[in-house]
């Protein structure tokens, strides 16, 4: 554990970015290059075997625009123990999970993030590497590219159809991981599907969503997680269809590779890029017009649709109950996102 201001050779710690079972990641200043970096510090259990170095080697092997870049990996003796320091590029914008918590993400941005991740994952798969831990927290935002990070659970040497051992963030795990104790390229695709599901539903507090399930473990092992949680009414059917296919309980029925999955997203044509401003207000800023939907509750519950602040009467409606008004607003959004 290091604190801001501590130094490890050329690195001075700025802040901790995250930690897990396999090490801690810090934002640091590299005095030699005068640059900001992210370093992951791992304890080396057995210096003779150096199993921990595998993560660095996999990152190097998976060098791609949509995978986080490794600069170097080195061993340091710190406090009498050998530590592995993996030196990586630093992305100040943080993770997709933080982005989701910070505010609503529009469909165009969601498609961009997920297709980028699928390019990175496809490259990893082409190198016979499984990531095995895809989730919003392991996706880093960087203009213009989105990058897959944290290859701590990744495994290599998996040819077509071969499998790795069961690993990964439990709620993003495909049913065969629980039932057959295996991971494959298709379990990575399932995990991307769950990530997409969280984004399109704007589910920032995933733990809270999971806590609504009576028997989450059963839902996970049956592969019925998506079905049991369900989609919000504002989710376009085309998005929902893509998630359902990516998260099919039977692996053979899923997208069979990253290209198929991203092509399904790339073929979508955005009509109105709706972004939720608040629970009662959505906005779609397009090149030629700003569309807004507001739910106003004065005497009646009224949904007001404006284009450049002028009412579009055909889409404005009043309702006796707020629930009906909410459903109308959500359905208006769901139907108009894609052409």
């Amino acid at each position: 554990m290091f604190n801001p201001g501590d130094t490890i050779q050329k690195y001075s710690i700025i802040k901790e970015l995250g930690n897990g079972r396999f090490g801690t990641v810090y934002h640091v200043h590299d005095a030699a290059l005068g640059a900001e970096k992210a370093i992951k510090i791992l304890d080396v259990a057995d210096p003779a075997q150096m199993k921990e170095i595998l993560e660095a080697q996999i990152l190097h092997k998976c060098r791609h625009e949509n995978c986080v870049h490794i600069n170097e990996a080195d061993l340091y003796e710190i406090g009498g123990t050998i530590k592995l320091v993996i030196d990586m590029e630093y992305h100040p914008a943080g993770s997709l999970e933080n982005r989701l918590i910070a505010g609503s993400i529009g469909p165009a941005e969601i498609i961009r993030h997920i297709t980028h991740i699928l390019y990175g994952l496809e490259h990893a798969h082409n190198q016979d590497v499984l990531h095995r831990d895809i989730k919003p927290a392991n996706i880093l935002l960087s203009n213009p590219s989105t990058k897959l990070s944290d290859f701590g659970l990744a495994t290599e040497g998996v040819g077509p159809g071969t499998i790795g051992s069961a690993k990964g963030y439990r709620t993003h795990c495909a049913p065969e991981i629980f039932n057959d104790d295996i991971t494959s390229k298709l379990t990575d695709i399932y995990a991307v599907g769950v990530t997409l599901f969280r984004l399109i539903n704007q589910m920032a507090d995933w733990d809270a969503v999971m806590s609504t399930l009576n028997n989450p473990q059963q839902a996970l092992s049956k592969g019925s997680l998506i079905q049991e949680i369900g989609f919000n009414n504002f989710v376009p059917s085309k998005f929902a269809r893509i998630v359902r296919k990516a998260c099919k309980p039977t692996p053979d029925e899923r997208y069979q590779n990253c290209e198929e999955f991203r092509q399904a997203l790339e073929r979508l044509t955005i009509n109105l890029n709706w972004v939720r401003i608040s629970s009662n207000h959505w906005r779609a800023e397009m090149a030629d017009a700003c569309h807004e939907l507001r739910l106003l509750s004065v005497r009646k519950h009224k949904v007001e649709y404006t284009v450049n602040r002028r009412k579009r009467r055909a889409n404005c409606k009043s309702f006796d109950s707020i629930e009906d008004a909410q459903i109308y607003m959500d359905e208006t959004i769901a139907k108009s996102v894609f052409s």
Binding site: E65, Y119, N126, P144, E259, Q263, R267, L268, T269, S339
Partner: peptide, 27 residues
């Protein structure tokens, strides 16, 4: 045969071309 929405902005389209050319040629 790979498709992308014909309405894709030029900069995004160029990135799409580059990403796919890279993926295909490396494969």
């Amino acid at each position: 045969k790979l498709d992308i929405s014909p309405d894709t902005p030029t900069t995004d389209l160029m990135n799409w071309i580059h990403s796919n050319v890279d993926t295909i040629i490396k494969r």
